[in-house]
Simulated scan of single mutants.
Amino acid sequence: MAATLEVESTLTDRYQTTVPETVRRALRLGKRDKIHYTIRPGGEVVLSRAEPAQEDDPVLGSFLGLLARDIANHPERLQAIDAGFVQRLQWLTGGIKVDLDAALSADDE
Rank of each mutant, 00 (worst) to 15 (best):
G65C: 04
D56K: 11
V86C: 01
I81D: 01
R40H: 13
P52A: 14
P52S: 14
V46P: 06
V46C: 12
K34T: 07
Q87T: 09
A72I: 01
D57M: 11
V45H: 03
I81N: 03
D82C: 05
L47R: 01
F63T: 12
V59I: 13
L47Y: 07
G84N: 08
Q87S: 03
P52Y: 06
G43V: 04
Y37L: 14
I35M: 04
I81Y: 09
L64M: 13
A72G: 12
E76C: 07
Q79C: 14
E51D: 12
L60Q: 07
L64A: 13
T38W: 02
A68N: 11
N73I: 04
V59D: 07
A68Y: 08
V46R: 05
A53W: 06
A68C: 01
R69M: 12
H36Y: 08
L66A: 13
P75Y: 04
A83E: 02
R77I: 02
V86Q: 02
L47S: 07
P52N: 11
L64S: 10
L47M: 15
D82A: 14
E44M: 06
A72L: 10
V59P: 02
R32A: 13
R49D: 08
A72C: 07
S62K: 10
Q79F: 13
A83G: 02
A53P: 07
G43W: 07
G61F: 09
N73P: 00
V59M: 09
G42N: 06
D56P: 01
V86N: 00
D82R: 13
Q87C: 00
H74G: 05
D82Q: 03
I71N: 10
D57T: 09
I35Q: 00
D57I: 11
P58W: 04
F85R: 09
A83W: 00
D70I: 07
G43R: 02
L47W: 13
A53D: 11
R77P: 00
E44N: 04
I35P: 00
G43F: 09
T38P: 02
D33R: 02
R40L: 13
P41T: 06
E44R: 09
A68K: 14
H74N: 15
L67P: 01
P41Q: 01
A83R: 03
A72T: 05
P58I: 04
I35W: 00
L78S: 12
I39G: 07
P41D: 06
L60F: 02
A50W: 09
R40S: 13
I35R: 01
S62P: 00
